[in-house]
Design a protein around this nucleic acid. Structure first.
Length: 486
RNA sequence: GGUCGGAUGGCCGAGUGGCUAGGCAGAGGUCUGCAAAACCUUUUACAGCGGUUCGAAUCCGCUUCCGACCUCCA
């Protein structure tokens, strides 16, 4: 399906028409999690955003290879050689093998992704599985003269690189600005320039995760794995490179420099960045202590939360904001969103029972077109959702007999809802009743209607109120009584 | 301090020059034995000040406030 898709590119700070390098194939690389602790909700937002993008591109018919790495090699805590590897530190404290830590949080991360109904990426490469590739890249950078070795460590020479390339192309800053604003940190004696960053770091004897290299035993620098793995699986140049907005100034800037230094090419055509999830206006992050874990959200077991929210509801809440806007987390907003989500899914559930009529009073095709226009405008899920609420209104009206749709339009409406609610937004109905439950409820409803028929309202209300308490709501209408889970 | 981004009605959140965003909440109505749900109608906006324009939430300038990055961070 040919669509006029526009994508905001951080490189140009503009929305650009999406034209894959090798259509119908699309290569997308997204910076994944560092698996030294539980993934928090802010991280989840980024992966839900890219899942939306992955799903939409796939829906449009592109053959997407979606690569999302798992950073399991551990990064330094500070910009110093004294910094301790995060994974090693945790391992020592817990007296576990580093890879045990990695395994635990990798498994946890994948579980959370599944709970949020994120599709698995095509490839999830690990940093430790690509040490050789990373070493190879360092060799190339040394050969090309953009890197230098000092006592078993290798650094990238930013000023030399910038003499022939634009180091600040992604964050829009020139080198002078960057040099003037870099704080003086300890442990930089080995570096030739203030902005130089490590490609390979000499390991101290107590360091747990380390590998042999041409420069001695050490471990890869913080930005190298993404260059190595994106290059290995997607080539010199691919279509989309994504990640959180906070990766722009350092991680992605350095990544571009590495790839250019190796292959002479900016690795990605479109750089896509998702904005932060905030709590009371502040970025959610581990270090600020305002982050919370998915499980706390589901159970409501957190001092910020009034109650728990279901995973699909949270996903819906996040998709109600555009991925490039900050999204502030709050109970009131969540509760409002929850009601909206139920409204949407209730309408979705009515689709199967809609009765076609000879006449047709609504142009579903036009609404469908609006849905595509929303998504084509830089994956504007909030506008798409607004259109889906319009679709819900249509469904409810037809259900109530107040609006007529012919067979063709009803089919179109079903297709529209299935496409956008299920396939593109990745939402699903969470009701998990067993097979007998509907039968039991139908039987109770039948008993109640008998009481109602006898004008025994005391009994019929008792049944209705009782079911309400258990969590089932009865709705009377001319066509009969329906029930739904609250 | 430097760079970048933001400020929309009670809450959240779209929208980049004229055309209803949407959800939740509030008000009125239809339906109903009563409810609920649904449907219809409806109130409350574009941080402040100036400028450009026939016309600005939208463009420009200034002010105030907030945030992000500059140090690992999605």
């Amino acid at each position: 399906m040919k669509q006029n898709l526009f994508v905001y590119n951080t490189l140009t700070r503009k929305k650009e028409q999406f034209e894959p390098l090798n259509a119908p194939h699309v290569g997308m690389y997204v910076c994944g999690p560092t698996v030294y602790s539980d993934v928090h909700l802010g991280n989840c937002r980024t992966y839900i955003s890219f899942d939306l993008i992955f799903r939409y591109l796939t829906h449009l018919g592109y053959k997407v290879r979606y690569v999302r790495n798992v950073t399991d090699a551990g990064h330094l805590e500070g910009d110093t050689d004294e910094g301790e590897d995060k994974i090693s530190k945790k391992a020592k404290l817990a007296r576990l093998e580093p890879m045990e830590i990695v395994q635990k949080y990798t498994v946890g991360f994948r579980e959370v992704m599944k709970i949020f109904n994120n599709l698995p990426p095509s490839i999830e490469p690990t940093a430790t599985g690509h040490i050789i590739e990373q070493i190879e890249l360092v060799k190339v950078m040394l050969d090309n003269g953009f890197a230098y070795e000092v006592d078993g460590s290798v650094y990238f020479d930013v000023e030399k690189y910038n003499a022939t390339h634009d180091y600040g192309m992604l964050n829009g800053r020139n080198l002078e600005e960057l040099l003037n604003n870099t704080r003086t940190l300890g442990g930089q004696q080995e570096k030739h320039g203030k902005l130089d960053f490590a490609l390979w770091i000499k390991a101290k004897p107590e360091h747990l995760m380390k590998w042999p290299s041409p420069w001695g035993v050490g471990f890869p620098g913080w930005h190298l794995e993404c260059s190595a793995m994106s290059h290995k699986y997607l080539g010199d140049q691919f279509d989309i490179h994504g990640g959180g907005l906070d990766l722009v100034p350092t991680h992605h800037t350095n990544e571009i420099a590495q790839n250019v230094a190796c292959c002479g090419k900016n690795p990605a055509k479109y750089w896509v960045h998702t904005n932060m999830l905030t709590v009371n206006g502040q970025k959610m992050s581990k270090s600020l202590g305002n982050s919370f874990l998915p499980d706390e959200l589901f159970t409501g077991n957190n001092h910020i939360l009034n109650k728990g929210y279901s995973p699909m509801m949270v996903r819906f809440f996040m998709l109600q904001a555009h991925y490039r806007s900050t999204l502030d987390f709050g109970n009131e907003a969540m509760e409002a969103s929850e009601k909206g989500f139920k409204r949407l899914m209730t309408a979705f559930g009515l689709l199967g029972g809609l009765k076609a009529s000879g006449a047709n009073e609504y142009d579903v095709a036009a609404l469908k077109q609006k849905c595509y226009e929303a998504m084509n405008d830089d994956f504007n899920s909030p506008v798409l959702i607004a259109e889906l609420f319009e679709a819900s209104r249509v469904i409810n009206s037809v259900h109530a007999g107040k609006l007529k749709l012919d067979v063709e339009n009803i089919e179109l409406l079903k297709e529209l809802m299935n496409t956008f609610v299920i396939d593109v937004l990745g939402l699903k109905d969470e009701h998990t009743e067993n097979e007998e439950l509907p039968k039991v409820l139908d039987f109770i409803v039948k008993l109640r209607n008998e009481a109602k028929g006898n004008k025994d309202y005391a009994t019929s209300d008792r049944i209705r109120d009782g079911l309400q308490k258990i969590g089932f709501q009865l709705k009377d209408s001319k066509e009969g009584t329906t029930w739904s889970k609250v």
